[in-house]
Amino acid sequence: MAANSFTKLPNPSTTAHQPLNHHRQHHTTKPKSLMLPQSLKPFTSLSWPRKTTTHLSTHRPISATVLSSLPTAWSWRAIKAFAMAELEARKLKFANTGTEALLLGILIEGTSLAAKYLWANGITVFKVREEIIKLLGKADMYYFPPERPPLTDDAQKVLDWAFDHKRKSGDSGEITTSDLLLGIWSEVESPGHKILAALGFSDEKVKELEASSSGPGFVDG
């Protein structure tokens, strides 16, 4: 008797996700499983530096969060500039974060020594954007770039150069936006270098910036 009087409980999977709007009832599908975006998964295998790092630019993006967790410290201005670079690449609808986007990121961050030096020499966000269009053209207006566009090979080399430059200088401080800017200039065939050159940047200005941003106790700002 007790067994026969048992009332079967409703199946949660068939009741918890009932559509609120009856017009959608015919379009309900099996709920998708929740998965973390690739850029939010832990980078457990990432070590720094590596002799071969181009796989980082072709397989997974490097987010600003990852930069801040690397063994070699990055200044908060450099991290913010990198985050702005990813955002600018998306605004331009580019599939990758290139040296031109890193340059824009430095300028948009705006408070670092490198940014102030560029602005003082007439290299502005607006001029750089114009040069990017001239050099690389406009992207397809209907293209939707990834949330965090991965680095181009040139941009990855800039990060490698910044690390090596800091290590060889004997300065144990943070990697700064000045290191990033000098790294962009070191990649002669990159869009970032070509844009800088078109706007009047030169080896002489590199020496000025390097002299101002080197030495113990330098603060990126």
Rank of each mutant, 00 (worst) to 15 (best):
M1C: 06
M1T: 10
F6I: 05
F6L: 09
T7S: 09
L9N: 09
P10L: 14
T14N: 11
T14R: 13
T15S: 13
H22G: 02
H22C: 04
H26Y: 00
K30V: 09
K30W: 02
P31A: 08
L34T: 10
L34I: 11
L36P: 06
K41M: 09
L46V: 10
S47F: 07
S47T: 15
P49G: 12
K51M: 03
K51T: 09
K51S: 09
K51G: 06
K51N: 07
T54S: 13
H55T: 07
H55M: 00
L56H: 13
S57P: 10
S57I: 05
H59S: 12
I62A: 05
T65E: 10
L67V: 04
S68W: 00
S69F: 00
P71G: 09
P71M: 07
P71A: 08
T72N: 06
A73E: 08
S75Y: 03
W76V: 08
W76T: 11
K80A: 15
K80S: 15
A81I: 02
M84K: 14
E88W: 02
R90H: 09
K91S: 10
K91A: 09
K93Y: 06
K93M: 09
F94A: 10
T97S: 10
G98P: 04
G98F: 00
G98N: 09
T99G: 04
E100N: 05
E100Q: 11
A101F: 00
G105T: 02
G105V: 01
I108C: 01
I108R: 04
I108S: 01
G110V: 01
A115D: 02
N121M: 04
N121Y: 05
G122F: 05
T124H: 01
T124R: 02
V125Q: 03
E130Q: 14
E131L: 07
E131M: 13
E131K: 15
I133M: 04
L135V: 08
G137D: 05
A139I: 03
D140K: 14
Y142Q: 11
F144C: 14
P149V: 09
D154A: 15
A155N: 04
V158E: 06
V158G: 06
A162L: 06
F163G: 00
F163P: 00
D164M: 13
D164C: 08
K166P: 01
K166E: 03
R167V: 13
R167T: 11
S169I: 05
S169H: 05
G170H: 03
D171Y: 04
D171Q: 04
S172G: 15
G173W: 01
T176W: 01
S178E: 13
L180G: 05
L180Y: 06
G183M: 12
E189Q: 14
K194L: 12
K194W: 00
I195E: 07
G200Q: 06
G200M: 06
F201H: 10
K205P: 07
K205V: 04
V206E: 11
E210V: 03
E210W: 02
G217R: 02
F218A: 01
F218Q: 01
